[in-house]
């Protein structure tokens, strides 16, 4: 298979998926941290360096809802919205394990296998159902965790605006901004090359 499959997380779900998808690249802590994603590219921090990992299929098997939010995947009650084989609202993005609400390692592994089988085009052995919403430690804790930011940054860091606007959107709608989690500032700066040309202004095709 020519597809580039990337699995985020090496817990029970990630390992079970990887067992069936030996060609997949695994991005897992502590070696590598997935901190942001955009369609077709996962952004990681590995050995102090920032890198983009291209993917055709992404399996998110770690508790990192912000990656799915950044990809525009639908969520409901702090869980991704997935179909019976773990596919999110983005066709090339799957989710499994604790993020989806799996309560035990066995259940997480079962979900990881189902996702892998679906990716391989095999009939999945069973179905995935989204678990109960995470325990409400407090909206701000959930929001901070889901966006991958600290609570202080949420409260005092000026992102409270977008976060609140996001929180007030209907649950099932993707939030209108793309979150990213903490990384060393200097690591991002080190990635900068030549000064990029300014992006041209975007034109509204709908009015053309």
């Amino acid at each position: 298979m020519a597809e580039r499959i990337v699995i985020v997380g090496a817990g029970a779900a990630g390992r079970a998926a990887a067992a069936l998808l030996p060609q997949a690249r695994i991005v897992a802590r502590p070696e590598a941290t997935a901190w942001h994603a955009e369609p077709g590219r996962l952004w990681i921090l590995e050995r102090g360096q920032i890198d983009a990992v291209p993917f055709d299929i992404l399996v998110v098997a770690a508790p990192v809802l912000h990656l799915l939010l950044a990809l525009g995947c639908r969520t409901r009650a702090w869980r991704p919205v997935v179909d019976a084989c773990g596919r999110t609202s983005a066709a090339d993005v799957f989710a499994a394990g604790a993020l989806v609400g799996a309560a035990t390692a066995d259940e997480a592994a079962r979900q990881g296998r189902i996702v892998a089988q679906a990716i391989l085009g095999r009939a999945p052995e069973g179905t995935i159902a989204v678990g109960a919403p995470p325990e409400r430690v407090g909206e701000d804790d959930l929001l901070a965790a889901s966006l991958g930011v600290t609570k202080v940054a949420l409260r005092d860091g000026g992102i409270v605006g977008i976060a609140t606007a996001a929180r007030h959107r209907t649950d099932a709608e993707p939030i209108p901004f793309a979150p990213a989690t903490p990384i060393p500032f200097a690591a991002l700066a080190a990635r900068a090359g030549e000064r990029p040309p300014p992006r041209p202004l975007q034109i509204d095709e709908a009015l053309a």
């Binding site: 955009e38 525009g72 901004f177 793309a178 990635r191 090359g193 000064r195």
Partner: peptide
């Protein structure tokens, strides 16, 4: 929705 441009953010 928006997609970030990480390389420009890096700059």
């Amino acid at each position: 929705r928006v997609v970030l441009d990480i390389d420009r953010a890096a700059y």
